[in-house]
Design a protein around this nucleic acid. Structure first.
Lengths: 214, 214
DNA sequence: TAGATTGTTAATCGATTAACAATC
DNA sequence: TAGATTGTTAATCGATTAACAATC
């Protein structure tokens, strides 16, 4: 059976659906129609129905969608019904913040290790996890079934580290380094380019000011 | 004169162009054709020419684009030719990391203040900037010509803080809180929903595994 | 059954790619 | 001038919205 490829536009909206459904669930709402949800989320009801139907019918004519069921189904689609071991590469400010932050743990993303090449950081504690020297990376990744590497290192060293990770079976890279990575097909990359995001904001400030000065 | 509205799809690509042109400039490359740039960036030459032409002709037939000129022009479009004062709201792990990190300073985003409601954090030093109590927010924003607020607080308190910021003339919000903000027209919002990003990664891991188990 | 609301097809809109005339 | 490459129009592709038959 041929699975149809879901567009990244749709995937990109799933976490937001998941968030809204979680809120509805917490509010004790049992069912919701695409119409009601569309008003709340400020998207069209049509888009909601199209999106959900990519994964098969979750609703029922004349009734709508069961909130809890839909929430769980979207969670499964997003792979939140199982755990993912992750390591952080780079124990600088951002790396440590992500290690400490880890609200992600609640969603099954388990913080297993953090690495740095700076000897003076090695041994420091980040939420119960000791910083390891980067030379231990390969062995650790292999032995601890690590699936995701979070890259919070300078762009100069990103390429080499990625090669080492790939060689040792990493499945996915959450990339905070400000560079485009080269990985073989089958290794997933998700970029978080913070400075790109800030530049977009800056563009929009600029544009608004220009539009309104005339 | 009617300015044509540029689509956010185009805006979203500008920072990446800017990055590649910066690299070319550093490599001492003087000129580049859309064809060469397209190979490097792995996009179509057609898209590159269309994108640039949204802002008027930056190139020259038979020659291509002058790297330094194009770099500077895109910088201007992105508003990087001037400075932007910003404050960080929330001196937790992420807020402090962003304050310390501030590679952004180089691009004209000046870190002016950081605020928290937790008395025990007040007075702490983040790269030379003392953490202030949130009650000082309004006055500080007004008196220091603050343009951008970086929101690194829990979603529960985001709404109220945003109202206070808007009341005091903030122009833009860089939102790391996991919630959709309501702002009046004219206030720019750029969301960085880290957990959404991580969920997308998780989806793609999942998908790949399923595709390959059969 | 009648009313409500989905699932799904068809229409529209916008973004990307291709093609080529203009021009350096 | 001839060759190269842009700027721009036209064609294609994909995503969003509208409409409505199916069905709970």
């Amino acid at each position: 059976m041929e699975e149809k490829e879901i567009s990244q536009a749709v995937i990109g909206r799933l976490p937001r659906y998941f968030r809204y459904l979680g809120e509805l669930k917490d509010e004790g709402v049992e069912r919701i129609s695409s119409q009601e949800l569309s008003e709340r989320m400020k998207v069209t009801a049509s888009q909601i129905r199209q999106d959900f139907n990519n994964f098969g019918g979750f609703g029922q004519q004349g009734y709508g969608y069961n909130v809890e069921y839909l929430y769980n189904e979207i969670g499964k689609i997003l792979g939140l019904d199982r755990t993912h071991n992750l390591v952080i590469i780079g124990a600088g400010n951002l790396g440590r913040a992500l290690g400490n932050y880890m609200n992600f743990e609640r969603r099954g993303f388990l913080f297993r290790g953090i690495f740095d090449c700076n000897e003076s950081l090695v041994g420091q504690d980040v939420r119960g996890v000791k910083v390891r020297h980067i030379r231990e990376l390969e062995q650790f990744v292999r032995e601890n079934d690590i699936e995701i590497a979070v890259l919070t290192i300078p762009k100069e060293s990103a390429g080499k580290i990625v090669d080492r990770l790939v060689q040792n079976g990493i499945r996915a890279i959450w990339n905070f380094a400000h560079v485009d990575l080269n990985v073989p097909e089958g290794v997933q990359v998700e970029n978080v380019h913070l400075s790109d995001s800030l530049m977009k904001l800056s563009y929009n400030i600029n544009r608004y000011m220009k539009e309104n000065e005339r």
